[in-house]
Design a protein around this nucleic acid. Sequence first.
DNA 1: ATTAATTATGCAATCGATTGCACAAACAAA
DNA 2: TTTGTTTGTGCAATCGATTGCATAATTAAT
Lengths: 338, 338
Amino acid sequence: MKKATIHDIAERLNVTASTVSRALNGNPRISETTRKAVLKAAKELDYEPNQVASALRSGKTQLIGMLVPSINRAFFSSIIKGVEEVANSLNYRVIVSQSSEVLSNEENAVKAFLNARVDGIIASIGKNTQHFDHYEQVLDRGLPLVLFDRTTPFLQTSQVVIDDYQGAYLATTHLIEQGCRSIVHLTTERKIDIYKERYRGYLNALTDNNIEPDTSMVFSGNLQVEDGRVHCEALLKQERKFDAIFSASDYAAIGAMQVLKENGFKIPDDVALVGFLNEPFTSFTDPPLTTVNQFPIEMGQTAANLFFNLLNTEKKKIRPKKTVIQPELVVRASSLKK
Amino acid sequence: MKKATIHDIAERLNVTASTVSRALNGNPRISETTRKAVLKAAKELDYEPNQVASALRSGKTQLIGMLVPSINRAFFSSIIKGVEEVANSLNYRVIVSQSSEVLSNEENAVKAFLNARVDGIIASIGKNTQHFDHYEQVLDRGLPLVLFDRTTPFLQTSQVVIDDYQGAYLATTHLIEQGCRSIVHLTTERKIDIYKERYRGYLNALTDNNIEPDTSMVFSGNLQVEDGRVHCEALLKQERKFDAIFSASDYAAIGAMQVLKENGFKIPDDVALVGFLNEPFTSFTDPPLTTVNQFPIEMGQTAANLFFNLLNTEKKKIRPKKTVIQPELVVRASSLKK
DNA sequence: ATTAATTATGCAATCGATTGCACAAACAAA
DNA sequence: TTTGTTTGTGCAATCGATTGCATAATTAAT
């Protein structure tokens, strides 16, 4: 049994498909009588619009392409959640793809989105992406493009980021307030801005509190659990004096926590710890890890709102907008002395 | 500057759009000469097929609707990841929606998928869903439907689940092998099969080892962290003797772990702990939590494979297939004595 | 009663790709 | 030379909804 179309409705009422289409879309040139009849017939025939046909004619698919490095990372899946919520409420659907941080995947995903004729794209660029031609194409076609978290100044388009500088500044200041003076920083060499900003926040918090930054206290790696372990073991081996670690990632912070505990250090009394990301596991460590909340769901909602802003703005009047979300320091036992 | 269509290619080569279409689709009735010319022109004009037009005519959108209770839960986002990987490699895209365990959301999402004319649906049903009309509609339309994790015997369609019974059996047996005899079980009243199966696995492991099950050792709640805490506190208050807890969820296990540690119990020596899910945080607790891995990414891949199986099978020959994934006990320090 | 203005609907093209059927050209067989 | 195949393309309809323009029907104005 096939789905009813507007033609079936038209036939039953002895009108044309045009009339039915207009009636269903609330066109004011249709009489109230006809409109009611159409709506009634539509219900009786269990009519549901075919969005594919509609999309072909109107050029609007009601689809948003969403590209993330990895779907199953807490941060990204929460952003997807936020985007989905807003999109859904406005009758848009979200197509997700992942780049796995590989440029060619990223390019292919964007191309696939364009072929699927999405109405626009929301994306976070890969860690190592330096070419942006594929995104330029999106803009050239006049499609809305919103970047989140990992952005680039090379693309003139709306973006949402958190204030990484502020997050790091808050974290470091908090450690100082807890009496720490020798604060280690775990970071990465990655070219994306977010880590530079966190590093800058760390440095400024130190100098603002009259603590001389010491570059030998800054360790660069991949920010994974193992990196945290390695750096921390190196610190201990060198018998360096330090009373706190601010890690640009929760994972490295956990690695450090493990090593510290294994070596009999008390957290936070001997060494206070602060991470970054507010990964779900941070509240389950022992002690629970102080970290920086990036509000990923809200970030997703914001990205979606920016998206619809672009979508509803005349092309000529579009002015890219950058939204900066203020992060929140989540203070837990790993840094709270006394 | 508008996208080129097959008509533009046709015009340039003085052939018709039919020929171009056939050439691009590898129809053997097109001469090699023409095919090459078409391919060349397509490249020069930067032609990309319009999938919307193709979808309208062919009835295939290359879209899969994927419905999960919540996008940002590790288990579900990993399943999405697995589905996306397979789908992507076969040139399909995945639309995601979340039900938030609310029936009306579930119904709306399915309806939205149908309106978007997806080629089929992969879904996990809501915790409280007892009506399946919306899924029946999918089947009535002859669309592939694959259910995963949370399924129902009321729908005749392919599904992927893990062997919850076996997971629980392994977990409980492991505790017994570690010398435990009084094993508490944390579960839920929910109507979905998975918890019943885990309970059954727990019981059978006990009786198979000549341990008399004691229903007063079984606690039912929501399986969240707080529930684990509450149940554990109750146990301690009643001064019940127990030497292990097998929780049907990692969250409740963590709650219990917290309470035990707060009360000076040694884990695993005084009480051994095993959870279920293999949530990412379980490796970061202290001690790390023994748990049951459900292989969610593999489950997603399997679901996708079942989906394409259905898609490529003649309607008449379709025989729903149930795939059962064998879980793995991930033994960590929370249960490993000595 | 005639004209003008308004209102409701129909006609037909369009979006871009696909496909059954027809047909011309080229070639082979008789 | 005639008939029969094979091969490569074209024609035109189709998928279902949308929309500019035309027109019929109704009402208002003169």
